[in-house]
Amino acid sequence: MLRPITIAVFAAVIGLWWLAGHLGWVSAFLLPAPATVADTMGDLIASGELARHSLVSLRRVSLGYAFAITLAVPLALLFVLSRPLRATFEPLLEFLRQIPPLALMPLLMLWLGIGETQKIGIIVLSCFFPIFLGVRGGFAAVDRKLIDVGTVCGFARPEIMLRIVLPSALPAIVVGLRIGLGYSWRALVGAELIASSAGLGYMIVDAENLARTDIVLAGILVIGALGLAADLLLRLAIRTLAPWLAGDLEMARA
């Protein structure tokens, strides 16, 4: 998976970064050198601070993501099964979908405080729609011609659902899950930037207030790395559980 060209690109970016400081293009305060950031990263790891903040963030994402799935999947299924429900609530959902979750932050803080509930709320809001739409779209796009095949084999409705409709819908569902995961991670860090006392987002803001740009950069790198790791993990799980979906996954780079 890690091709030489990938390593070369990352190395080039780090090289450029180092060069920018070394040649004095930017001050060491605005852009600390790679070595400084690496040192800081080492300190953060040694002190356990990085692990602590990361775990807080990861816990929030896991809870929020799981909660969003348990909310979005059954709701989407209800929508799939009931045309009246669709007709009634579709416009409302379309309206809600247009609102960036972070724009709801002030209200969420008033309603839910600034504790874990509010963080998890933001995550649920941010990844609800990709998952919901993925499930809905997946079921809506099922090829009627494949259902005919089940009908002529004498399948009853539950068997058609389980053996034709569900596997057909799976690619879109998986894409929704993947996009949702990306959204939730980004929204979480945003939420932690605004009102928090722990988590990677908080770590960054706190460091900014102390003028520790090296910690800010270290935090940013960890956020990117953890997001990437989560995505890789999800893709690995799908590749193992549903290898025929590997191609569909590449559409989900949103």
Partner: peptide, 8 residues
């Protein structure tokens, strides 16, 4: 007319 195979 089409094979209509299950792609999975």
């Amino acid at each position: 007319q089409e094979a209509r195979l299950m792609p999975w």
